[in-house]
Amino acid sequence: MDMNTKSLKKNAFRVTKERGITASRVRIPGGRMEAKYLSLIQEIADTYGNGTVHITVRQGFEILGIPFDKIDEVNKLLQPIIEGMGINQQNGGSGYSAAGTRNITACVGNTVCPYACYDTTAFAKKMEVAIFPNDLHFKVAFTGCSNDCGKVRMHDFGILGMTVPQFEADRCISCQACVKACAKKSVQALSFVNNRPQRDESKCIGCGECVLSCPNMAWTRSKKKYYRLTLLGRTGKKNPRLGEDFIKWADEESIIKIVKNTYDYVKEYIDVNAPGGKEHIGYIVDRTGFEEFKNWALKDVKLPEIAEVTHRIYWSGIIPK
């Protein structure tokens, strides 16, 4: 049996424990798809696989138990899913292009969840178009609000939705629902002065609890959407750690630009001997220093006026030699 495992992996199939048997990895960017594709996944699993599917941690389906010689057929059947989800593909009918950059995940977002500050799947898909396919090991995840149900701080780039609460004093009825909600559920950014809430801008994380709790629309959301960008969280054997805040009150365009800029930075500084040509960005930053990373990442980025950039970041854990 002859199989180029490098090509196999780049085509989103896996080397499994069982010789000659692979699994097809179906990515769902932003975690949402039309339900009609489920029947296609079922068809592949029943016809070419062993009839089972694993729901992956990164919002995909792994169709299990596929013999190597069925890969071409599986790729043909996958084509409507790939096209339907608008995934960047190099050659039509050739299946997913897979490599280092991992599926972009998203929590359910504001089309469903009252807390979410934006459409997470829509942003994830924009990011997908900007960065896929790519061999470098990047993990990007989107979550609607500071609750971080998307666990985005475990990613290289975590994007958390924010809103700048707008206060219309004349609509306030002094019930303190916002003050209580902020104190109990968020960061105690609101105090009560002269029967009205006063917002400490430096504390506020833009979670929107005040807006949600206000019974009289005294608090509303900002027209513009903002995001917190967290950096270089990672799992793995060497030195797992949570991502740290990089920019508070960033905008969509800047975030896409920063992620794209980081690809240039990694290409410049990646360890040429890294196993499989993949290295977590965090280890590269540990080597070059954060300043150098920041210079590359923020190149030509025009942040909104209210954006706050962290100028030194100290991650936890030991920096490996």
Binding site: P114, A116, Y118, V211, L212, M217, K225
Partner: peptide, 15 residues
């Protein structure tokens, strides 16, 4: 209609 003026993001408020 207060566009995007609803309690939840991307919702309007009629008031």
């Amino acid at each position: 209609c207060f566009q995007d003026g609803g309690r939840f993001s991307d919702t309007d408020c009629i008031r």
